[in-house]
Amino acid sequence: MKINRRTFLKLAGATGAAGMMSRPRKARAAGLARLSDNSYAVLVDTTLCVGCRACEAACSEANRLPEPVMPGDQAVFEKERSTSPQSYTVVNRSRNTNEKETPRFVKSQCMHCVQPACASACPVRALVKSPEGPVVYQQDRCIGCRYCMVACPFGIPKFEYEKAVPSIRKCSFCAERQKQGKLPACAEVCPTGALKFGKREELLEIARTRIYQNPDRYIHHIYGEHEVGGTGWLYITDVPFEKLGFRMDLGTTSYPEFTWPFLSAVPFVLMLWPPFLMGIYAFTKNREKTTEAGEKKEARYE
């Protein structure tokens, strides 16, 4: 292709336009983050948790799940449990190495990430992040590909393997109750104030204040403030987070950012491959024609 002034201007214009198109998206992503900071969250203060498991019972009742195993029995803490299709939240005891350490309890459930891996991984938007905070599951769209389970760094989405028509099951942050102005069942029932429901920004302030006022007591870290780009459930504690079963190697990058570079390259491949391939095709054709013409010429001379 010969580049004259007109084609140059066209190209420059197209490039500029493409550049401008990429700007609003960044702005939009930032906007989303701000919106989510204003969303609802829960602050878990493990120093206040006594391991009564009332939250488990309330959760089961609110979600019409079977009753929690071994109610009121301390032996339940002998084995570390994880959430399942039949229990959206479980309380575990800290992994203490000797008798002298005070046992701590920690509740686990969906973290309701600010930018959830599961929602960005779902090909059919069966998992979506609502602006109010909850990451909710819409069963009527789910195809059962289980990519959300691969993506979730906390291993939260659970699949009904025993069913012929299975769904994904996980904590919904009681999104329905929240809509009616009620607290999540677990936060409502918690007798010690270990679970505090509120605006995420305000809860972060409270958490910082508690750490600031009791610097010798708390670990100076709010789990979930920055982990995987921020989560809706925040934790503070006075024992090392590892002992409570938290993964400290998750990083602060939000999971959608891992696939974003790839996904944003897709339109470029779609735009650039066709002219490139057609160019090669044209070149090949042209070469064939020239060769044919050359052969004919030679044949005439023979």
Binding site: A119, A121, V124, R125, L263
Partner: peptide
């Protein structure tokens, strides 16, 4: 039916 455009899947 339902487009999860942020998904590689």
């Amino acid at each position: 039916y339902s487009y999860g455009v942020t998904s590689v899947m």
